[in-house]
């Protein structure tokens, strides 16, 4: 067991466990995450003074069971993370492969688009769009998806450039394959491993950004149990009950940490070397 395989295994374990928890939220959550009980507000976690085994991680300012909200919150993070990556992956990969394969003016245009995207302040623009369109899960996914494609584009472009002049592409062309066939059936499968590594990193980033947007009040709308929103709601009580921000914060950190470990492990495993 090398150190690398231990960390990859840890990443796999964390992500796998959180995915299972999110899928089985209905079975695992001891309470309904939306049911308020104003008699039991801000009950501390089980192991602290005043804790009860009825609410293992306590309750929030509206008396909602914290553990149940945390469990359902995993769904939101994973859903937004994966849907964002699908959206941004489609945009970025299309642009990157097109630029890398055709080169010349088309590539210049793709590079220009990437440069412009990098110049656009990410959080600021995301906040503005959500504020104008109205906050919902779909809006957050689309906004982040439309903003986070540049790393997919950069990697798809570079790797396409590396494979486009290889013999098997020339062979496909000689056999009369259409350009679309070459791009989708010949090039895409060969650069896929690189894109999967990018996808893990972007998913981690998207989850952090969703939490930040929700924290600022312009992400997932309440009463949905987004971890970022839980931190925002707990902020007013954190001086007396620090656990209200520690619980969702640690969950967020562990999930993103696990995804990053998994991504680094995949990069080594798939033999992908890329500049960060």
């Amino acid at each position: 067991m090398t150190a690398r395989s231990i960390s990859t295994g840890l990443g796999l374990f964390i992500v796998g466990a959180i995915v299972l928890i999110a899928l089985g939220a209905g079975l695992l959550a001891p309470h309904d995450p939306f049911t308020q009980d104003l008699m039991y507000r801000m009950v501390p976690p089980r192991w602290m003074d005043g804790g009860t085994s009825l609410h293992l991680l306590g309750t929030d300012q509206l008396g909602r069971d914290y553990l149940s909200r945390l469990i359902y919150g995993a769904r939101i993070s994973l859903l937004i993370g994966s849907l964002t990556v699908v959206t941004s992956g489609l945009i970025g990969t299309t642009l990157g492969i097109t630029g890398g394969y055709f080169g010349g003016r088309i590539d210049d245009a793709v590079m220009f688009a990437i440069t412009c995207r990098l110049a656009i302040p990410l959080i600021l623009v995301a906040l503005t769009v959500v504020a104008l369109v109205g906050s919902s899960l779909t809006v957050v996914v689309l906004t982040l998806g439309l903003l986070l494609w540049e790393r997919f584009a950069v990697v798809a472009r570079t790797t396409t450039m590396q494979v486009r002049n290889l013999d098997y592409i020339a062979a496909a062309r000689a056999a009369g394959a259409s350009t679309a066939h070459i791009l989708i059936k010949e090039i895409l499968p060969n650069i896929l491993t690189h894109l999967i590594v990018v996808a893990t990193l972007e998913m981690a980033l998207a989850i952090l950004l969703e939490a930040a947007l929700s924290f600022l009040g312009l992400g997932v709308p309440p009463p949905l149990p987004s971890w970022g929103l839980m931190i925002a709601e707990g902020k007013d009580y954190m001086f007396f009950s620090p656990w209200v921000i520690m619980v969702p914060g640690i969950a967020l950190f562990v999930l993103v940490f696990g995804i990053n470990l998994l991504g680094d492990g995949l990069r080594d495993l798939l033999g992908v070397s890329q500049r960060r």
Binding site: G228, P242, I245, G249, L252, F257, L261
Partner: peptide, 21 residues
């Protein structure tokens, strides 16, 4: 890796509780 996974707004709140308060 830890730095990469740290939600900045949360770290801010934790530091406020720890060092400030």
């Amino acid at each position: 890796l830890i730095g990469q996974a740290m939600p900045s707004f949360w770290l801010g709140l934790v530091l406020i509780i720890g060092f400030g308060l």
